[in-house]
Design a protein around this nucleic acid. Sequence first.
DNA 1: TTCCTTGGTTACAAAAAGAGACCAAGGCTC
DNA 2: GAGCCTTGGTCTCTTTTTGTAACCAAGGAA
Lengths: 131, 131
Amino acid sequence: MSPENLHVPHECRAVGEMLSRVGDKWTMLVVDLLGDGPKRFTEVKRALGSISQRMLTLTLRNLERDGLVTRTQFETIPPRVDYELTELGHSLRYPVKALSDWVVANRRDITAARARFDEAQEPKRKLLKLA
Amino acid sequence: MSPENLHVPHECRAVGEMLSRVGDKWTMLVVDLLGDGPKRFTEVKRALGSISQRMLTLTLRNLERDGLVTRTQFETIPPRVDYELTELGHSLRYPVKALSDWVVANRRDITAARARFDEAQEPKRKLLKLA
DNA sequence: TTCCTTGGTTACAAAAAGAGACCAAGGCTC
DNA sequence: GAGCCTTGGTCTCTTTTTGTAACCAAGGAA
């Protein structure tokens, strides 16, 4: 039942690189968002809310480069650009969903753990200040 | 079959925050490594290879704060500190494995897509230089 | 005596992310 | 027809985050 032979050592580095690439701040969120159909730039931006235009551009560019989304540009004014998951992009939705399910299932525990940890640290800081 | 109702909008922000927290450069790698038993600081460091001492300290501290690992300190000289996944930490291994399996299965496609993309960008840069 | 060890911390440098102004160029309002 | 709005960016500047390298304690080994 446990995830065994996770350490094909040769692949470890490559997997690590990809994990930190795909697991950056916005990538999974964007993949998730594009999951239910193509969206244009500003739609994604609005849905994400807090992302800056620059970071969205960068994130989408990287996704495009990795073959996870396609970029379709319409030569209209004002411009219109649609982003859509490729087949590869869609396949990424499953592991992303596994992770976000885990987050949903466990975030209360995590929040509680944080509170406990911070609580335990606080007195130490007080002691240091007194010393 | 498709990951539906992924958008419980209220939870979206919280999930996003957790994803970018847990999906930082080293966290998943460390969780993965600790998966087959407790390890001491330097063991993890050596296994990861390229991580700096500072980032490993930070990563482990965050994992501890989130209740995903425990830190056990032995009062010996030289010091010895063991890090071990908690139950919560172990539960994270499954989605992490799902993601790393995806990476293993698809990284050739991704590498190829990147090469294609970079190839397509190269001529443009040349044209710009000529202009 | 000198060096090595571990698990850090600190100060400083480099890289990445975020904030915000600016742009093209046509449509709409007044 | 002057002025404003729109979209999908880019450019510049500031703030965070990462990385690098030096230092530390304190005992054991050479």
